[in-house]
Structure formats: C-alpha cells, structure tokens
Design a binder for these strands. Sequence first.
DNA 1: CCCTCCGTTGGTACATATTACCATCACGGC
DNA 2: GCCGTGATGGTAATATGTACCAACGGAGGG
Lengths: 181, 181
Amino acid sequence: MDSATTHERLAQFRRMCREHGLVATVQRQAVFETLLEREDHPTVDQVYERLAERVPGISRTTAYRILDTFARLGLVTRICHPGSAARFDPKIGRHHHLFCVSCERIIDIEDDRLDRIQWPDVSACGFEIQGFDVHFHGLCADCRSRQGKKGGGAVRPSKQPKARKSVPRNRSSNLPRRTKP
Amino acid sequence: MDSATTHERLAQFRRMCREHGLVATVQRQAVFETLLEREDHPTVDQVYERLAERVPGISRTTAYRILDTFARLGLVTRICHPGSAARFDPKIGRHHHLFCVSCERIIDIEDDRLDRIQWPDVSACGFEIQGFDVHFHGLCADCRSRQGKKGGGAVRPSKQPKARKSVPRNRSSNLPRRTKP
DNA sequence: CCCTCCGTTGGTACATATTACCATCACGGC
DNA sequence: GCCGTGATGGTAATATGTACCAACGGAGGG
C-alpha cells in the first residue's frame, strides 16, 4: 500500500544514522519503524514484542540498548511517570500529558496556551532549561465509570495487574543464531 | 535544641494517624520525621538508609509499605520522572520541577505564573483533571560545568552510577527479633 | 497494670525491570 | 570480497518492587 512511504522512511532512517554516526543495522531500523507506527507510549517490552515479529531472534537487551540510544539522541522521549517500567514517547513535537492515577494510562494532549507558558527564572541555581511539558493527573474515562459504579469510596485505587507474559526471558533461545556450525 | 518542635511533630503525627485510622507505630513515626527533614526527592532506599539509623532492624519492606501508605493518603507525592526507582516528594503544596537529564537530580521551583495556567478542555476524552505540575528538563549547574570542561561533545550524557550499597537484602538478619526464646 | 485482638512488621521468596559482560557477528569503507 | 570497528545475542548479575505469613505490639477494655 505505502511502499513509497516505506522508501521515504528508509531514507530518513539512513540519513539519521549518518548524521549521528550510527551504523544502520536492521535492528535499529526495526525499532525506528515500530516507533513510527505507534500512537501510544509503549514500554520496552511492548516495543520488543512488535520487534520480535519483524526481526526474529532479536534480543531484549538490544531493544533496551537501541531505545536508550534513540532517547539520548532525542529521537524518542523517555516519559516521566510514576510507574515501574520505562515508557517511551515516539511523538517529538511539543505536547503535554494526562496521567490516569488509577490505571496509569498516559494520554497526549496539545494546547497552544500551554505551549506558550513563560519559563521561570532559574538563573539563581544555574540550571539550563531545554524544554518542558505539563503533567495533568486525574481519572480517565474508563476508570471514572468503573469507580462510579462501585460507589467511589476507594482509598486505595488498585493498580491494574502487570501484563507481561510469563515467558522466561529471551525466549528465542530455541533458534540459535550464534553457534557457527 | 528543638525539643519543642519535636513535641509538635509527635503531636502532629499522632493526630494524622488518628484521622486516617492508622496505628501510630515507631516505624511510621520514623518515616514521617525522616521525610520532614528532607529537602530533596529521595528514593525508597535513601529513606530506608536514614530509617535504619533511627530504628535499628527496620525492614526494607516496611519502608516500601509505609511510603506507599503515605502516598495514598497524600502526605507525600510519588514523583513522575524518567528514572527507574520511585522517588517521593515530601513537599505537598503546589510547585513544579526541574529535571536534570544527565544526573537525574530533581529541583523544586515555585512560580505563581505557572500555578495559574489554564486547564485544557479535555471533556472530549472524558478525563477528569485533578491537578497538575510543570516539568522542565535540562542540565543542572554541576552537570553543565562538568560537561563544559570536557568540550561538550558528549552524545551520551553518562548517568551517575547507582549508589546502592551491595549489601544482601535485609542485612539485619544478624539481630533476630522474632524468635522468642 | 495486664490481656487480648487486630493491624502492622520482618523476613523470605518471588516477580519484574535493567544492566554488565563478552564472544560473536555484520555494516560499511576500502 | 576483506577488515576493522561498532553492534548484537545471550547469560548472569543487579535493581526495584510485591506476595505471603508467622510473629509482634499499639490501643482499648478489663
């Protein structure tokens, strides 16, 4: 359907690697493409799951490493959030976030007025501000209706159970690629 | 020196427990006091280290548990940040944060203009906003000068090494309290 | 002051998240 | 095609956080 776009992406990817002095490996390209097609804020594992389909045998370690590299280069943002697993934001432009305190969902919002807030004077402490975003916290629609039905008295908003499949790490061990016969 | 203040704190602590239906244990009081005297944004382990001095034999599990309880009651805030270990903010009033992308330091700032930003209209997605704070990211004074000296070309701003002592968990095992003789 | 009860703690074991390490590999310049 | 260097895969180790349960102890009643 969009082989032209695919071509563009590939060119964009190679250009980017050139600029930053990175080797353009298939693994990095797969991460790049996986991020491009996401609208949410995936964890490393969520990215890895998709990667495993594109590049059979890819290692979880590699997913961590590439996401870290991309984050350091500013191609993706490591999101500020109170959960336990790191989450990444493929969207680069200025935008802000809603955090559901109950299910930990993160929702992007855009708002010109927020973009234009005046930066505080932090010269006193010597900090150099590079950017910002505004965090709103509260309840998402789902959690709101769920809580409404139960009477709403919950002092302890129960966290959604962790979703990671209980597969022993690096399940790709059954297709060994390294042992040269 | 400030035994009057100490007295006040104790009263404040007991009142607080009463209000929330919590038992006023020495462990909870120690956490309460440890948080009061901190100006930074400690991890559980940093709180635990201080606790271990006040209450010999206290368990790391207890530190996690009490901080969680306090956070749920709003006595302390679980900070949104991009690092891996949860960090807590003893300061409750409205304020905002500077995040150093290099050393992960978190600095409080206060600014009336930021407090007054207008909340966006999120009725479309059904989200209920309860509060907000503004995240600025950049480089703290220390990291700025450190980077300046090196020529500033660092593509990979190196994270400070983790500081946790390599003591096997719950080192207090050598003073058993539970086995009643 | 003692007793009893239920909320709390300590400690182990486990679950999850991330990193260190190193042998092996493959991208890209020649 | 060949080589050197940077990247990957996999294991082991470290970090961080939670479940569980027996033992404890704060607080109210006797």
